[in-house]
């Protein structure tokens, strides 16, 4: 069975290491915060200017001066800190954030990502995504394997305007975990429970590399 959004988030949470600072994008990436493995301490950075972001506030305790980059009301954990946008992107550009998780509309097998614009249809802007993908060493894309029309979002080449080039290292979808190899190609690492290699092959348009037996995810 393919994973739901929480399943994708749960699998990505297994990639977290103790002591990491992590930036989570809007959508599925936000859910990663709900699945942090026991014994792992991480701090969440939101690029509008907070480190040590906590869960949503209780009803009635929301503060208009305390939001995340998705403009949602949040709380701050003990030890949290606020800062301005320029300092925030110094943390990101300066590679002080160890992991970035973000959503995508398309990813190519050489690590290009498109997630900010559909010409003629949607122009909301890139927000902080271009700075994040251009700077982070460790970028995981969280997304569904195919779009609403059933077409693969893992491609040889992105068709939409790019957010960044050669930057994505790993993709976790509802069907699989794939590493993007430095020389290009989606290397299949794990299958979602009950999903066959053939199903993944049929849903992937870019170069898929299958090396030996592919284990099922342990989540």
């Amino acid at each position: 069975m393919s994973l739901d959004k929480n399943g994708i988030a749960r699998r990505i949470a297994k990639e977290l290491s103790d002591g990491w600072y992590v930036n989570l994008g809007i959508g599925i990436p936000t859910l990663v915060a709900n699945h942090i493995p026991e014994g792992i301490n991480v701090e969440f950075q939101s690029e509008n200017g907070i480190l040590g972001m906590g869960p949503f506030p209780f009803d009635g305790e929301e503060d208009a001066d305390l939001i995340n980059a998705g403009k949602q009301t949040i709380t701050a954990l003990p030890g949290a800190v606020y800062f301005d946008s320029s300092t925030s992107f110094s943390m990101i550009r300066g590679q002080h954030v160890q992991l970035t998780v973000l959503g995508a509309m398309e990813v190519s097998h050489n690590g290009d990502i498109a997630n900010w614009k559909i010409p003629g249809k949607m122009v909301k802007g890139m927000g902080g995504a271009m700075d994040l993908v251009a700077s982070a060493d460790n970028i995981i894309v969280a997304m569904m394997h195919t779009n609403k029309a059933g077409e693969s979002k893992l491609l040889e080449e992105c068709s939409l305007p790019l957010t960044g080039v050669n930057c994505v290292k790993k993709v976790v979808t509802n069907l699989a975990v794939l590493d993007i190899l430095p020389e290009g190609g989606f290397k299949l690492i794990e299958r979602a429970p009950g999903i066959s290699v053939d199903m993944i092959k049929n849903s992937t348009k870019g170069n898929l590399i299958i090396d030996g037996d592919i284990p099922e995810m342990d989540i």
């Binding site: 869960p55 949503f56 506030p57 209780f58 009803d59 009635g60 305790e61 929301e62 208009a64 001066d65 939001i67 998705g70 403009k71 949602q72 009301t73 949040i74």
Partner: peptide, 12 residues
């Protein structure tokens, strides 16, 4: 006024 754009809360 300090309007909130996305009021996200947990019910008590």
């Amino acid at each position: 006024e300090k309007r909130i754009e996305q009021r996200t809360v947990i019910s008590k």
